[in-house]
């Protein structure tokens, strides 16, 4: 139930005295309440749960974790690493998404 997904704010408006927005989830557009992210502006990403944006996505922090993971990836490229149970190939993902 705590599923929440990131989407991009593409329009901001008011409804029944609440700050609301249209959110683009990769082409699927839906409405969400933005009352809890009062500072958000169009073009920014928010994390939406049950019709409410509960958090703004911090793009710098996202970048920071990518950099840490890139370092790990560089290391295995140098050291080599074979895992027997091939992790999360696209095929497996598609099957489990069904």
């Amino acid at each position: 139930m705590c599923l929440a997904i990131p989407g991009k704010v593409i329009e901001i408006f008011e409804e029944n005295n609440l700050k609301m927005g249209k959110i683009d989830y990769n082409g699927v557009i839906n409405k969400a309440c933005l009352a809890y992210v009062p500072e958000v502006v169009t073009g920014q990403y928010v994390i939406v749960h049950a019709g409410f944006a509960i958090s703004m996505l911090d793009e710098e922090e996202a970048q920071r974790s990518f950099e840490a993971w890139d370092d790990f990836a560089d290391r295995i490229r140098e050291e080599g690493y074979e895992v027997t149970s091939a992790p999360l190939s696209d095929k497996k993902r598609k099957e489990s998404d069904k």
Partner: peptide, 14 residues
């Protein structure tokens, strides 16, 4: 971006 198999492997290795 959070499903990249190569990066997943590298975190597993860590």
């Amino acid at each position: 971006e959070y499903r990249d198999p190569e990066k997943i492997k590298s975190i597993l290795k860590e």
